[in-house]
């Protein structure tokens, strides 16, 4: 029992130390996953305890950067959950069509696969030229990769399959060039995407979005941080703006449950209500 108890205390202190020293706030991340990552880093670094690891983190920024990579969620794929993209085209795109200019915030974009997927959908629907996509992540390393838009060629088979199941209208090969063992995304997909650093735990609002996409990020957060981030999204969306979460994420039992209504419940696409609680209070 002692070990676990001590480890849990050490983890809290480590996360506190990281926050104070480097400003990254992992204190409200779901603990089980964070703990696995810390213990993994501990094992491969041949350190004896989390306290020892904390010392390394404080005194060696390179070591902290390694841990930061461990903590960031870097697993993604193009057209993950084809059903989501299919629904997007059917239900959401027709609404977005009515706007002269569209702003989309992709929060927690990681290495960018899902951002480029969105760009492809918008292009095929004739919307890309009047869209600005802000793609953000707290991790500068993954953002750099996202900006490059170079993906392992071995994944293309899966991506093509996903693309086809998403209702893609072209040949997926039109969107990349194969070079050695890499697939380089078509340059034209990049022109309206801005990749930028933003930390959902500590940074502020992005204004007047028509749509926010944040998929499989909230599952890593504890309830309080989920509420904080959903509040941030609510404030960043226009009235009736869309919020797209991961297929296994939900607004149920969060503080913001009543500020949104489900547009496509199965794939977790919501719309901000015109009357949210604060608005009502101010009327």
């Amino acid at each position: 029992m002692k070990t676990t108890e001590n480890e849990n205390i050490e983890i809290e202190m480590l996360l506190e130390a990281i926050y104070r020293k480097y400003g990254y706030d992992f204190r409200s991340y779901s603990r089980a996953s964070i703990k696995r990552r810390i213990l993994h880093r501990l094992a491969i670094s041949r350190l004896k305890s989390i306290s020892e690891l904390q010392h390394r983190v404080l005194y060696h920024i390179e070591f902290f950067e390694k841990l930061l990579m461990d903590f960031s969620i870097n697993v993604t794929e193009m057209f993950r959950d084809p059903e989501f993209y299919k629904t997007l085209v059917k239900e959401i795109i027709p609404v977005l069509q009515t706007f002269p200019y569209i702003k989309i915030w992709h929060a927690g974009c990681s290495t960018g696969e899902e951002v480029y997927s969105m760009a492809i959908i918008l292009k095929e629907e004739g919307l890309y030229d009047r869209t600005q996509i802000y793609a953000t992540d707290f991790n500068e390393v993954v953002l750099r990769q996202a900006r490059q838009g170079i993906f392992p060629l071995e994944r293309i088979k899966d991506y093509t399959y996903n693309y086809q199941r998403s209702g893609g209208k072209e040949s997926f090969a039109n969107y990349y060039t194969a070079k050695y063992d890499s697939a380089i995304v078509d340059q034209s997909l990049k022109k309206n995407i801005v990749f930028a650093g933003h930390n959902l735990a500590t940074d502020g609002v992005f204004g007047e979005m028509n749509m926010i996409v944040c998929r499989n990020v909230l599952i890593y957060f504890k309830k309080n941080l989920q509420n904080h981030v959903l509040g941030l999204f609510k404030a960043s969306l226009r009235h009736h703006g869309f919020l797209c979460l991961g297929t296994k994420e939900s607004l149920m039992f969060t503080e913001h449950e009543n500020d949104f209504e489900a547009v496509a419940g199965k794939v977790k696409i919501y719309r901000k209500k015109i009357k949210t609680l604060e608005n009502e209070a101010s009327i």
Binding site: S30, S33, I73, V75, T76, N216, I219, Y220, G246
Partner: peptide, 9 residues
């Protein structure tokens, strides 16, 4: 004693 999900590797 709650469940959580992840999309880790």
């Amino acid at each position: 004693r709650t469940l959580s999900l992840s999309v880790d590797e």
